[in-house]
Design a binder for these strands. Structure first.
Length: 225
DNA sequence: GCGACAG
DNA sequence: ATCTTGTCGC
């Protein structure tokens, strides 16, 4: 993958290093129908304040979707954003936030892609391997792959493919609103990920876990200032 | 060779 | 992600 014209050119040496680590992690990804009984579903999100990163984790009951816990970790950001390597910038801090949870979830919904990535290791997949926990990705924009626009009605789905492989699905979670991109992260499969995304997208286009994590990121943000 | 590019 | 005002609609 070449680098976007509008972003600062990444250090080739760093990129090579990350690419090798990425390949090592990718080999550990397992795509399968989860065997868990989903009772606790987590959502996570990160925001930035200058040179620091704020990562949030929220845990909801399933299928009621009632908030049971929310935590965050605030620390220095180590790397710049490089398309295709988002996890190396956000995952370390997310792991620290995750460790603060008193209630460990059965599944984590991540804001970003799972295997819908040029090398099949989006942030949802990478975080899943790091935590050895089922994960799925819900992204607002496509990173790689081709797809048709799903119909305007909620529930419409269209495949996201890359090099002949199904890497995710484009889902209209709300009538006439931009669709989201859902893909399995780790210890998960497309069918289950899509079903959960649709079932948890109640009043807004973003599923509740992701939406709430987003919300508390703003709340905690005011707290660390 | 010319674009496109999660958060 | 973040910088940023008003504005349309439920």
């Amino acid at each position: 993958m070449a680098w976007p014209n509008h972003l600062p050119p990444p250090d080739p040496k760093i990129v090579k290093e990350l690419t090798e680590k990425q390949e090592q992690l990718r080999q550990q990804v397992i795509l399968q129908k989860p065997d868990f009984e989903l009772k606790l579903l987590a959502g996570c999100d990160s925001s930035f304040i200058g040179e620091n990163i704020l990562s949030v984790f929220v845990v909801l009951t399933y299928p009621e979707l009632e908030l049971v816990e929310k935590v965050y970790h605030y620390g220095p950001v180590e790397l710049p954003y490089i398309p295709g390597f988002l996890a190396f910038r956000e995952a370390p801090n997310l792991v620290k936030a995750y460790e603060k949870l008193q209630h460990k979830p059965d599944l984590i919904m991540v804001d970003g892609h799972g295997i819908a990535h040029p090398r099949r290791l989006g942030i949802a997949s990478q975080l899943g391997v790091l935590l050895n926990k089922p994960t799925m990705g819900v992204a607002k924009k496509v990173l790689t792959g081709k797809h048709e626009e799903p119909a305007m009605e909620k529930g419409s789905i269209t495949p996201l493919t890359h090099r002949g492989e199904l890497i995710g699905e484009v889902i209209r979670t709300k009538d006439k609103v931009k669709p989201v991109f859902v893909s399995p992260g780790h210890l998960m499969d497309q069918e289950t990920a899509t079903a959960i995304a649709l079932k948890t997208a109640i009043k807004h286009k973003l599923p509740e876990p992701t939406r709430l994590a987003d919300h508390y990121a703003e709340v905690f943000k005011a707290e660390v200032r």
